[in-house]
Every structure is written in structure tokens, then in C-alpha cells.
Design a protein around this nucleic acid. Structure first.
Lengths: 146, 146
DNA sequence: GCGCGTTACGGGCGCCGTAAGGATG
DNA sequence: CATCCTTACGGCGCCCGTAACGCGC
């Protein structure tokens, strides 16, 4: 079992959907699905009922995530004490309209640079908001189709 | 950070030596050394003072291992609840005199079979004890140079 | 057909082992 | 020179991404 898998699980429960969780975790949906399968196999339990409207936890799954949170809480304590997040990160933010190529390029950038030194933010909004974000220095980069 | 790395750290502290810990963990000493370096780099801390007589924890290292134990305790709770150890494992034990080739073959076996279904034990002792172990069914296999 | 999750498969990175190096008693 | 740890380097396994599939609305 990897700590990462537990974090994945948390996100899935939070969103109620493997698809949505995968987007927020910046990984592909099959990878996430497989990661959960691995844990289910490792502990020989079933975590979710898979339905067409996302997923719901089984009773075992509910119990499992309680233990999982105990672990993640301890991990967070360690990370906070030993400066995983204490060092102020540089910020790089992009505001733009919703286009697949924007999201894709942004994800690729995040993966290439890594999140050790930078805090990345992508804001998907409307034309005028993009202009405002740039004018107020809320984002470093704006994309419009004007 | 991997849970495995924390378990490695525990063993090193327990034995006071990277060399000895590596033997007990069935991994090579450089691998273990590298695993600790990775954590030190990840959190930008120094865990040990490396001396010729093994290692000793730094103050930061002492604090780190306290957090580490908090995590491992939670992990153990989960493992115990979800049957990592509950299913009784088959036992395969070997008693023999201390020979490098015996240790090597044993380790290779453990790696090949895996520790999911079997509980492996290697007893290194003297000729008579080997005979006793076999006679009392304490071990399944004995090796002597008679 | 669209949206959800799964299965199949190839590639790249990371962990481990072997070998060689450095330091200290 | 013996012991302990580190550095260098190659291989294999594992995780992820792309692609194709199954299934229900």
C-alpha cells in the first residue's frame, strides 16, 4: 500500500467519482481506477459499488477510509513539521476560457516543472474575467479568443 | 515518502547500523543507504550522524522518528483490521550451519515465493541443534556438513 | 451516442543489486 | 586492512498514459 493510494481514495470519496477525482489529481482515469483495484486486491476487500452515476462506498470501504484518514492525519503532521509546505512557493496562475488544449498544456507544464517549487493555478472563466485577472495581477497569463 | 522507507528507518534505529538493518530487511546495504538519502533530500533534513561504529540519530532525526512511529502505528491498525496478518500463513523453516550459500539461497527463495502466503524462518546454529530441530519438527529442512 | 468505469498494452522512471570508492580506527 | 557508508551504473518491475471495450441512460 502506498500513501499516494490513500490520498487518491480520499479524493474519490470527496468527489464521489473516479473521473472527477482523476482530473483534480492530474492523473488519467484508468490509472486511478487501477490504483484502487490494487488496494482492493491487496486487502481482499471491495471498497466501492461502481455505478453509472459515480461510485459509493461499501460498508467495508467506509471502515477502511476511517483507518486511512488516521494514517493521512499522521502523515500531514510530519509533512507540516518538516517543511513540505512551509517554504513559500512561487505562484504561476493562468486564466482562460475553457478549452481542452489549454487544460492539456497546463497539465503538461505542471508535470514537467513539478509542484515542489511552484504553486500552479488554472482558472477557467469568461472573457471579461480573464481580462480582469490580468489587470489585477491575479494571473500571470490570460487566454482569450478575441 | 514511502511507508517502506519509514519501516526501514525504524529498523536502522533499532539496530543502530545500516549494515545490520539491511541484513534483517533482506535488502542490500547500498539500497538502504540510498532510501534514507532520498528521505533526507525530500525533507531537507539530516537524520543521522554517520560514524564508523554505525549511525546515531541527530536531534532532527529523533523528532522525525517520533512522527514516523505515529504513522506506522496507524498503518499497523489498518493492516491488522484488514487481514494482512490475520490469515494464518504456512510455515517454512530451515535450520543450518552458517554458510553464505545457505543464506543466499534462502533469501532468493523468499523473494521468489513472496511473504504473502508463507512465514519463512532461517535458523543458523550448530550441528547438534540442527539435528534436534529436525527431530522435533521445528524446521522442515536441515543442513549439516557431516 | 454520451458518460461512466474497466481491460489491454507499451514506455519511462524508480528501486534494488553488484561493483568500486572513500574514510576512519 | 577491515569495516562502515557512499557513489556509480545497469536491469527489472511498477505506475502511468493512450487506446479500445462494456455497459446503462
Amino acid at each position: 500500500m502506498r500513501i499516494q493510494q490513500l490520498e487518491y481514495l480520499e479524493k474519490i470519496v470527496e468527489t464521489g467519482s473516479i473521473n472527477e477525482a482523476a482530473k483534480q489529481l492530474f492523473i488519467s482515469q484508468p490509472s486511478l481506477s487501477q490504483a484502487m483495484k490494487e488496494m482492493e486486491k491487496e486487502y481482499k476487500i471491495q471498497l466501492f459499488y461502481r455505478t453509472k452515476l459515480g461510485i459509493t462506498l461499501t460498508n467495508e470501504g467506509r471502515e477502511f477510509i476511517n483507518y486511512s484518514r488516521g494514517i493521512l492525519d499522521q502523515v500531514n503532521l510530519l509533512d507540516e513539521r518538516f517543511g513540505k509546505t512551509t517554504t513559500r512557493k512561487h505562484i504561476f496562475s493562468v486564466s482562460g476560457q475553457h478549452y481542452a488544449f489549454v487544460v492539456h498544456a497546463f497539465v503538461e507544464l505542471v508535470k514537467k516543472i513539478g509542484q515542489d517549487e511552484y504553486q500552479f493555478t488554472l482558472r477557467e472563466t469568461q472573457t471579461q474575467n480573464v481580462l480582469d485577472d490580468i489587470q489585477t495581477f491575479k494571473s500571470e497569463l490570460g487566454l482569450n479568443d478575441l
